[in-house]
Design a protein around this nucleic acid. Structure first.
Lengths: 198, 198
DNA sequence: GAAGAATCTTGCCAAATGGCAACTAATGAT
DNA sequence: ATCATTAGTTGCCATTTGGCAAGATTCTTC
């Protein structure tokens, strides 16, 4: 018998792919998650508060962003379906977040709290490994981005994002994509013009 | 009685500060580490091989660097005394590293292998927490760097590095510091000239 | 301590990106 | 449908950074 919600089924799928474990274990884990929904523009996390939900996004898109000294939004990452969303430093160290996480579109996901996650980490070595894997992947991706920010032109980074995450372009305004790429919206606009003429 | 080597004492200190735990636990952990030494220019890790040592540096300086598509070295981080040094993605996922780790000066440290670390993680929840804390801090620092790379000028980043890690400047050539800051050595030289005239 | 190799600096000019403001296009609320 | 708001584009010019090559300086190594 299998009474999992569609969201939980997706999570089971995701977990077992990220770190192989018995189906039963994965279902037990997924069973502890509850459904969450966000309207467009809603915040999953606001600067200054402590990230307390570990969310697996099943539908919709979100972005994380920080506010720079001049008061501008800088997009630090985009999140889409089948991705884990939370603010690592705030969540694990129980400190106020310096970032915001906001829905770009209506979103559905499933979540657990910090307390439940810890309980599961303690009880299930497989889930710990899964958790670490998520952390390591995130770290590794950020490193790659950092490297490409240093070694590549904005145009190359734009083209790469377009290729690896074309869906982002359908859900996020160019202005937020520009800050993600480390440039202004003006520059992005010019880059796009330049490319279209090729 | 206390038979710890000076390196192990430093590690115990570091561990208990990063994540509070009984002295005995910390000593047991430190007891599993063995001393390692590197001459200037020696590699702790070479691109293409799997990071298998989790090193706590007690003396000396190292840097991690990647090779960009044009064959240039890009410094991804500097490591000094009282810091943990390893390549996260390679170490935890057992995959070939895309980075090198090299001694900038003669170095002394203590290390454990992947196998031993896992054994300790499995046996000691406190050590797991310590390990996670290291990971989370690394992630968080990288995020800050990424943000400052996007929002601040090279000059501001230079001044900040000078303030937060003045010791680096005594042990790393400016060329490697330049790539760390995301600029060329030529630009760094000009920035320094500009500043000295203030 | 002299030759050779790295490292660092500087001059010249080119390329990439930003700032601001005006304009146009798209979107959303009523 | 209309108005107001937000998003995107473009022109003009300034600033930041890069590329290259020549000099100057410092570090190695014999």
């Amino acid at each position: 018998m299998n009474s999992l919600t569609p969201e939980r089924e997706k999570l089971v799928d995701f977990i077992t792919k990220a770190y192989p474990m018995p189906m039963k274990t994965a279902s037990d884990i997924a069973g502890r998650f509850y459904t969450v929904r966000f309207g467009k523009g809603d915040f999953l996390l606001k600067e200054g508060s402590v990230s307390n939900e570990y969310v697996f996004l099943t539908e919709g898109y979100m972005r994380s962003f920080a506010t720079d000294p001049d008061g501008n939004d800088i997009t630090t990452s985009f999140h889409g379906p089948q991705q884990v969303v939370f603010e690592i430093a705030s969540f694990f160290h129980r400190i106020p977040s310096r970032e915001n996480i906001q829905a770009l579109t209506p979103c559905t996901g499933i979540a657990i709290t910090y307390a439940t996650l810890n309980e599961l980490f303690h009880a299930l070595p497989e889930f710990r490994e899964f958790g670490r894997s998520i952390l390591v992947n995130g770290f590794s991706n950020l490193k790659s981005r950092m490297l490409s920010t240093i070694t590549e032109t904005a145009e190359a980074r734009y083209l790469q994002l377009l290729q690896t995450s074309p869906d982002i372009f359908q859900h996020a305004p160019l202005r937020t994509i520009a800050t993600y790429l480390g440039i202004t919206d003006t520059s992005l606009s010019r880059i796009r013009k330049e490319i279209s003429g090729k």
